[in-house]
Amino acid sequence: MTPAIDIHNLTASYERKPVLWEIDCQFPQGKLIGIVGPNGSGKTTLLKNIMGLMKPDSGYIRIFGEKLDKVRHRVSYVPQRETVDWDFPADVMDVVLMGRYNPKKLFGRISREDKDIAIEALSRVNMLEFANRHISQLSGGQQQRVFIARSLAQKADLYLMDEPFVGVDAASEDAILNLLTEMKNNGKTVVIVHHDLQTAYEYFDHIALLNTRLVASGAAEEVFTSDLLQEAYGGRLTVLSRIGELIAKKDFPIREKGQEEN
């Protein structure tokens, strides 16, 4: 089977300073996949690159073997909760209905069917009773569940979620996890950025350990060795961060054209 996500030699930077170095890995379909790493290790950046929200310096990504634009309708992205202003004048239903938008449907009407899908999504995250509540009047965990409901309403095959368990209490975390497992059992692929090591091993089938470089990517039991964890959490490689600074400061290209054969 083609991998759900296939990342080739991805290097990505902010203001010319690389924060991801040569990431090269594949995520299988139909699995619960965790991207794990310390703060600032580039997890969000990796998702952004997968979703085409930033342009990588080198490398490319294939989703179900295709370029993103061809399969965009099959992919759903749940950004971190801080990416929106929760005081925006919108209620829960407005946000979930956004899951039914697409570039072509921006001008048409929202159909009865779309509404039904949104309602179903809300009930799957146990938020139906809040459908008409203003989004600022939700707890952090509830806001997170609204985002997940919107994502469910997209009816995608691949889900990318950035820290969906942050600020969520234990009971809701279990509920969400059950939901995700159920999605997996229906053949969906779910990729989750997570930074709690304690739970990562239990939750995920496949884990990618990240810390500016890819430390390991594979079945949970292969990756969760103390050596590899030590390597991922044992701090940045100083040489790597120093060269990153040099690249930014001296304005050198990260890749050059016309290389000598090895």
Partner: peptide, 25 residues
């Protein structure tokens, strides 16, 4: 060694980094 990159991936990166590395580094 340190970044666990496969052998067939390392050459192009080194091609550009060789120009950047200072004496300190």
């Amino acid at each position: 060694q340190k970044m666990r990159l496969k052998e067939d991936h390392i050459h192009p990166i080194a091609e550009s980094m060789e120009h950047i590395i200072t004496e300190d580094l």
